[in-house]
Write a protein that binds this DNA or RNA. Structure first.
Length: 592
DNA sequence: CAAGGAGCAG
């Protein structure tokens, strides 16, 4: 790289070069020049290099920034500020706070640039204790009236939930500006006091796009009062892109996808966030088909997907079981260098699992450079779901040996896997070790798994005891799974108890009586069966409509029981008919 | 000589 420069560059030439550096390789060139020319002793040049690295923080590893910083002799205040800023930008607030402590210890002068960075780091950490100590530091240096420093403090207290402290600073300040108003308003919004945020908004001497966006977001997403948010949105004079996105997100948060879509469709300008909000909204609110279509039209308009929209599209494929499209998105993401971070890869593993492609899931899982708790959990859940309960439990033990942290989802996955594989003893043991060995508090869902595990294995009495002795109130689903097991294990007495409990919980829907009448029928208790049927008729209960979704050659088909609107319905019923005929023929030949 | 605070997607 150095070869591209004949000889050494002068100080001025290096500074010029840095000034125009927008690529990492350019930074490397200058770095090499500094080393060969022993120019690190020039604090200004060294700090300019660091500053350029900081501007490129998204593409530079933290270790490289640290290296350059450590090479500068007696770093200046500016260099310290810059390396702290780098770590705040790179989401290493811990490191930033640590560096600040070292800076103080080294006796380096702090200035009005230092505090906003380090306060931001504290805010990210929600580290009120450190923040308060830095507040004391600020007062000693007499920088408390610098608007940047003060706003940093306000924002710190807001993020830490100390809105009263933030308010006190705000009220006592002589130099508050628009950002101070906005910060405090954001603070009220995030602690749920939208009313006070609204009063601040009305009292503001001037407003900018931030002010509007904070309150639109506050009314919409945070307070769920989307009509007030819309009022504000309509009144806003020069709506910027963020405001549109906030408003759309407000609708999406309440599941009002139609309203969200209407706004989206009339937007003059969209960015990848606008698309992501909507795609993610469709995924979350049960319309994965629409999410995928939107993702495709986003690509069609030349918008490069980011991690959020990619994850949205991938999980839409998981929900639909759309393996072909999922694989296509996987290769698209690889080809276009979309950051394959651990979240995206986990979504892909989940997609392959949900689509039943265990080998592809395993391949990706084994190759992943980093795995999160979610990655492991997804794999465990997937194995269990696909009927590989023993493998799921084995993976759980492997996870334990690696010392990976586990969360409640992990246990939900492994317990469900135990249920499906009838691994009663393992399941029971893992449940008992949850709190003791892994410090994960079992939730109702985990008790649900345990009850399911025991009752399916026929240990109905034991299951009933778990329900009755668990902390908190048992939910209807617990009694529900006991009831379902009573049917397979033909236990009328326990079933009747379960139905009574379900009735008390107001959860005795049609399904409960269907199961109960089936249980009676199996025992030949026909009087009871008729009683159940009559009860259902009286209450106007019906069975839920069955529906299913399938992907064929990349397009999605939905089937609803009794629905005949599918374009290929005649062919479908013909095939179905012939299947039934074949089944009948087979049965007939078996019987005779 | 240089750089900083507030808002939208998971």
């Amino acid at each position: 790289m150095v070869a591209s420069f004949p000889g050494l560059l002068s100080r001025g030439e290096l500074l010029d070069l840095l000034h125009n550096s927008t690529t990492v390789s350019r930074v490397h060139q200058v770095h090499a020049q500094l080393i060969t020319g022993a120019l690190f002793s020039d604090p200004f040049v060294a700090s300019r290099l660091l500053s350029t690295i900081c501007e490129l923080s998204a593409r530079v590893p933290a270790s490289y920034a640290d290296l350059v910083f450590s090479q500068s002799h007696q770093p200046s205040t500016f260099s310290w500020n810059t390396i702290i800023r780098f770590h705040v930008r790179a989401s290493n607030p811990n490191k930033a706070v640590l560096l600040f402590a070292r800076m103080r210890k080294a006796g380096v002068l702090t200035d009005h640039y230092t505090y906003p960075f380090v306060l931001k780091a504290c805010a990210l950490l929600a580290g009120l204790e450190e923040g308060a100590a830095i507040h004391g530091d600020v007062l000693k240096t007499g920088l408390g009236e610098d608007p940047f420093v003060m706003n940093g403090l306000i924002s710190l207290y807001c993020k830490g939930g100390e809105i009263a402290a933030a308010r006190k600073l705000f009220d006592g300040s002589r130099s508050r500006d628009l950002v101070s108003w906005n910060s405090l308003m954001a603070g009220y919004v995030s602690c749920g006091d939208t009313a006070e945020a609204g009063r601040l908004f009305d009292a503001m001497p001037e407003r900018d796009a931030f002010s509007w966006a904070i309150l639109i977001d506050g009314y919409g997403k945070k307070a769920g009062d989307v009509s007030r948010a819309r009022d504000l949105f309509d009144k806003m004079p020069n709506k910027d892109l963020v405001c549109w996105n906030s408003m759309i997100d407000g609708y999406v948060g309440l599941g009002m996808m139609r309203a969200a879509r209407e706004l989206f469709d009339v937007m003059a300008e969209r960015n990848v966030i606008s698309w992501s909000i909507l795609i993610d909204g469709y995924v979350k609110h049960g319309d994965p088909k629409e999410a995928l279509e939107l993702f495709q039209s986003m690509l069609g308009q030349g918008v490069r997907p980011d991690v959020i929209s990619a994850v949205g599209a991938i999980s839409a494929c998981s929900q639909l079981g759309a393996l072909d499209q999922g694989r296509w998105i996987h290769s698209y993401v690889k080809k276009h260098n979309i950051l394959l971070d651990v979240v995206v890869e986990t979504a892909l593993v989940d997609m392959y699992m949900k689509c039943g492609s265990l080998d592809l899931a395993r391949l990706l899982f084994d190759e992943m450079p980093r795995r999160s708790v979610v990655t492991w959990s997804v794999m465990i859940v997937g194995l269990g779901m696909n009927g590989f309960g023993c493998e799921a439990v084995e993976l759980f033990y492997q996870m334990e040996r690696r010392g990976a942290t586990m969360d409640d989802l992990t246990f939900l996955g492994v317990l469900t896997a135990c249920t499906h594989a009838r691994l009663v003893c393992e399941g029971r043991e893992i449940f008992d070790r949850m709190r003791r060995d892994f410090r994960v508090e079992p939730k109702v869902e985990h008790y649900g798994c345990l009850v399911d595990l025991l009752s399916r294995a026929g240990r109905l009495q034991e299951a009933k005891e778990v329900i009755e002795t668990m902390p908190g109130t048992p939910t209807s689903s617990l009694w529900g799974s006991l009831l379902a097991a009573c049917r397979t294990h033909r236990c009328v007495e326990l079933a009747e108890i379960a139905v009574e409990k379900l009735k008390k919980l107001g959860a005795d829907d049609g399904g409960v009586y269907v199961i109960m009448s089936n249980i009676y029928a199996a025992e030949g208790m026909w009087n009871q069966v008729w009683k159940m049927r009559k009860l259902m008729r009286e209450r106007g209960m019906k069975k839920e409509t069955g529906r299913s979704v399938i992907e064929v050659d990349g397009s999605i088909h939905e089937f609803v029981y009794g629905d005949s609107s599918h374009p290929y319905k005649e062919e479908i019923y013909e095939v179905l008919g012939s299947c039934q005929m074949q089944c009948l023929e087979k049965m007939v030949s078996l019987i005779f």
